[in-house]
Nucleic acid binder design. Structure first.
Lengths: 352, 352
DNA sequence: GCATCCCTTCAAAGCGCTTTGGATAAAGCA
DNA sequence: TGCTTTATCCAAAGCGCTTTGAAGGGATGC
């Protein structure tokens, strides 16, 4: 707790007061001129702006924060245990956030918290007034973070949705529709034993994708076989292992739906290992988040996919949070982006 | 520029003044008690701490910042163009930073800036008093960020070093030594045509690694062939492509030194494609940053490596910056971590 | 000509904390 | 006992901005 006293900052910069004195104007006028308020004569404003530029004057952030109550920063928390940062989906999403917040000159602060401290951290950051809002990523179908934040009455925006009937700003893609259509495509091509390699079960996007998958099957009177559905982290390794397992079954699936290109990449490796021709012996289709280092279209054969850039998602969600902070009503800040389905040669008709 | 007036924050929280009044004490005493200063009677402190806990009092961050001059936040800038966040080396490093700064309750703020704005952003954040310090990553051998920051007189800590003879706090690993020893090992095993798959040329760590490589060769009277040295981003794809190129040369190298497990992973794929037995027909050794999803020891065959966790590096560098901010002299904040060399079966003796 | 308005500008009051420079009372010392 | 220390606590002065409430002066309206 003990803190060093008397730790004044670097060299002294020019202050508003100094600038005002130099210009023979009041601080009020200078402040207003610089912040774009209308009650300043245009000529005066010019003078002020010019002088500020010349002296390199910059308003002190802490003082401004205290006076306005706005912090100019938002936070995103993530579990320190799960190595989320290393998940390229998350990183790419972060990149989108950082880009937009950078443009808006807002600080995006990253917080690793242990699971046990997470809710308390939201509470603490809020009541200390350390942030203007939060980005929440990877919501679970039932997620206590959301009700907490709603209760704290602090702006937040969610990457995805939840199932607990709360109302909040979010950006999501049409996961259910995407997977329904992808499944439909496979069904149209005559596939009936279709496997699903999905994300971690609790996460809402995985639930939605499974729902889309199931409902497409159900419409044709097919019920999903539990053994053909896998839930887990979306990494190459698991795509490989699960696909091996599936291929080695007595009645192997003829098609495979993967929740990430990473999983599909593993599936490709497994198929090759087992000597199966992708697009012929086994069809593979995946959701493509647009990860820059693993492009669906450059795989061999090119991978059919439902596509939606997760990085753009981050960018858009940042905009949503900014608008929320600016006071726009929640009802106007709920966005569901459609997902394209791109047909490529990794899928073909079922060989009976 | 125009900003909404009158945007007061969420519900009102208890303030220091309220707490002091309730306790019938002065703000001074309450503040001191809570911040661990000695001039408060222990009994009084107990009362204060208890009351604070009970009312859920939290000091307002902006007010504290203004009063102390400390912001409680540090920033790391990265180029928006290069998709650095998606580089797993960077992400893992970030994870280490986030962990330590989280423990210290410091905000770590991520800033994507365009190359052209980068220096100006450092300047702006500093003079506005928005940060207590900076983390600088991936220094180039000659890096203008370092001289700028030194001139701004703001604390910063560098992940790596540079060649321009500046003095600053840093954490680095012994890149040169690591690669010298790895090269020595290969030479001891009889290899003479050794290739180097390295990182981007401008980056200082790549320079150091090449230096280590060259000096080991030079000691045995061998001079490095330029065609056997590759510089570029450390991704699987390039490891694959470059290794293919090397193998297809008339006199192919018998050993390969890679600056990342990702590059080595690509090299493995290339060797397999070309029907070469790793550890026999071609020896491969890499630097292992400890990326959690790609473990050198689980590759087939296990990959020999110089190892040093980049995540721990991030953690340690965060400590260094914190100590710098707390006033510790630069000379005590320069750390070069040794690198272990782990022998595994991906290297074997040269077949003549 | 006088009252009314608008356009500019200003002085001063916060924002909620930390910290300086005492003041008071109790304790130590001679 | 009288005086210096020491241990506690306090009032008030910032920190550097934004914003409220007012005022001065020229233009307008009748």
């Amino acid at each position: 707790m003990l803190q060093a006293r008397n730790s004044k900052r670097f060299e002294e910069n020019m202050k508003l007061k100094d600038l005002a004195e130099h210009l023979q104007l009041s601080q009020t006028t200078v402040s207003r001129a610089l912040n774009g308020y209308p009650e300043v004569a245009e000529e005066t404003r010019q003078r002020i702006v010019e002088a500020a530029r010349q002296f390199g004057y910059r308003p002190n952030a802490a003082a401004r924060r205290l006076a306005t109550g706005r912090t100019g920063s938002v936070a995103i928390l993530f579990p320190a245990e799960r190595n989320l940062l290393v998940d390229p989906h998350f990183s790419d999403f972060l990149a989108g956030l950082a880009e937009k917040f950078g443009e808006a000159d807002m600080d995006l602060s990253l917080k690793a918290t242990r699971k046990a401290d997470e809710l308390e951290t939201y509470r603490r950051l809020t009541t200390m007034g350390r942030v203007d809002g939060f980005i929440v990523s990877s919501p679970r179908s039932h997620d206590e973070r959301l009700s907490l934040l709603a209760g704290l009455n602090v702006p937040f925006a969610v990457h995805g949705r939840s199932q607990d009937g709360l109302t909040f700003p979010f950006f999501d893609i049409d996961n259910e529709g995407a997977f329904r259509r992808a499944t439909d495509l496979l069904l149209d091509l005559g596939h009936e034993r279709i496997a699903l390699l999905n994300g971690i079960r609790d996460l809402n996007f995985a639930r939605a994708r499974e729902e889309g998958f199931r409902s497409a099957l159900a419409e044709r009177g097919i019920s999903a076989e539990p053994e053909l559905i896998f839930n887990g982290p979306m990494v190459e390794e698991l795509g490989y292992r699960q696909t091996c397992r599936l291929i080695d079954r007595p009645s192997r699936p003829t098609a495979l739906l993967a929740a990430s290109v990473l999983l599909a990449f593993g599936a490709y490796r497994a198929a090759r290992d087992r000597g199966l021709a992708i697009g012929k012996d086994i069809s593979i289709i995946a959701h493509d988040d647009g990860l820059p280092f693993l492009k669906a279209e450059t795989l061999e054969p090119p991978l059919a996919a439902t596509v939606s850039s997760i990085r753009n998602g981050g960018y858009r969600l940042a905009e949503i949070l900014l608008e929320r902070i600016a006071g726009k009503p929640v009802s106007e800040l709920q966005e569901i982006a459609p997902v394209d389905l791109v047909f490529r040669s990794s899928v073909g008709s079922a060989r009976k």
